[in-house]
Design a binder for these strands. Structure first.
Lengths: 229, 229
DNA sequence: ACTGAAAAACTAGCATACAAGTTATTGACA
DNA sequence: TGTCAATAACTTGTATGCTAGTTTTTCAGT
């Protein structure tokens, strides 16, 4: 497991959460692998309590499974879960895009353009690692403008299912395409064209579609059996 | 505070959660009131640990606010929060209604009709307390048919903000209206009419609109100041 | 070598003790 | 009576011990 640096005034619980999430999305804690409060606590230099609290929180979004008195595991990849995360994001982002057309002030739009400027800069300097971060910031800003920050937070909670498979995909998303999308979206927001904004957002989110079958073929042991309906 | 009966194999944490939620929505734990892990634990006959875990979970949906080393409080009513909960529900329910038109089998539709049958029975026998429960079951069934159960669970998490003000409203929703809505919705689902199902669902959810100003006037001390944007 | 039961080594849930920080109280002094 | 500092009484965060349940291991008996 990769142990991150603990931030200045970060609580033990938040630290444990951050470390666990990082290791889960990067597959250092493999899907299906068993995890133990004791071991994790020892590795992070904490006691069981904050680690346990973090695990409980992760189990709420079904990325960790706790079997009382037996064991806890990192959840296997369940495409039903991934689909729910994507579905929720699609619906909320599109609705937010429309709302932003109504609500955005000139200052708001300037903030969005600033996001995009940083993304462009990032593209040219080939630090493509952090583009995802800037991408997230752009979308979060949209939710802020629409006054739907809590919805964004909840969404991010289950988004970890999606993020985990995103990292496994072979064909990475073309980054310049993403930034170009952002520019068009902001432009339609500026012209207050709700239906266009929604349509562009829908198209934009579709770029993140991933090759489920390909990943499943390469890592069959990471996948849960499809449940019967 | 109202202490509920502990269920057979219910964990301490789940029990604490249930008791806390119940007391929060029924205002026995008033908005803004201070709560202490120690006191709550004593009242429920538990130790701090499970109570604390429950409080952490409630703080995730911002219905409880934890100020480390200072105090914890029941959140004041924040209409921004209520709006987010309603927004999320509206969007997801409408999208799910469309999905159900595609996915519902005859068996699924029979399940929905059974829900409605029980609601009708309930209407006639004037046990109107539990109609909300049956109403919830109907909507949850829709999410199950659409294979979006986790989305439903997340939604229910912040729905507590909405439920709390719902109980404070003077003019109660006309119950027979709700059941009639359900019947029309199922009927459009049966005919696979997506746009009609969405429209009916939107109309249906609008029946839950509440008189914000009226409640605020009666219970000003329960409300948070409006934040500056 | 195989079977099966006892025992040891795990698991997470819960209780409790302590630490670190904040607030309320007390009481001396002006 | 009023001020202010010491202190006591809270708060939540974390560590640790104990309980109850499950799994694994051990080892006797065949």
């Amino acid at each position: 497991m990769r142990i991150l640096e603990r931030l200045p005034r970060e609580s033990g619980r938040d630290y444990a959460l951050r470390v666990l999430k990082d290791n889960i999305v990067h597959l250092d804690l493999a899907p299906g692998s068993q995890i133990s409060e004791n071991e994790l606590a020892a590795e992070m230099g904490l006691s069981r309590t904050p680690v346990r609290e973090a695990l409980i929180e992760l189990s709420r979004v079904r990325i960790v499974e706790i079997y009382p008195q037996k064991k806890s595991t990192v959840a296997l990849i369940d495409y039903a879960m991934v689909d729910e995360a994507r579905f929720m994001r699609n619906q909320m982002e599109c609705a937010v895009a429309e709302l932003v057309c109504e609500l955005a002030t000139e200052t708001d739009i300037a903030r969005l353009r600033e996001c995009i400027r940083m993304q462009r800069f990032n593209l040219e300097s080939y630090y493509s690692d952090s583009l995802m971060e800037l991408d997230n910031r752009f979308h979060e800003t949209l939710f802020q403008i629409a006054r739907k920050q809590e919805v964004y937070r909840l969404m991010q909670g289950i988004a970890i299912h999606f993020d985990r498979v995103r990292g496994m995909a072979l064909d990475t998303v073309k980054n310049h395409r993403i930034v170009a999308d952002h520019e068009m979206i902001v432009s339609t927001i500026g012209s207050r064209n709700k239906s266009a904004a929604r349509a562009l957002m829908e198209q934009h989110l579709n770029r993140y579609r991933i090759d489920e079958a390909g990943i499943r073929a390469r890592y069959p042991q990471y996948f849960a059996e499809k449940k019967q309906a």
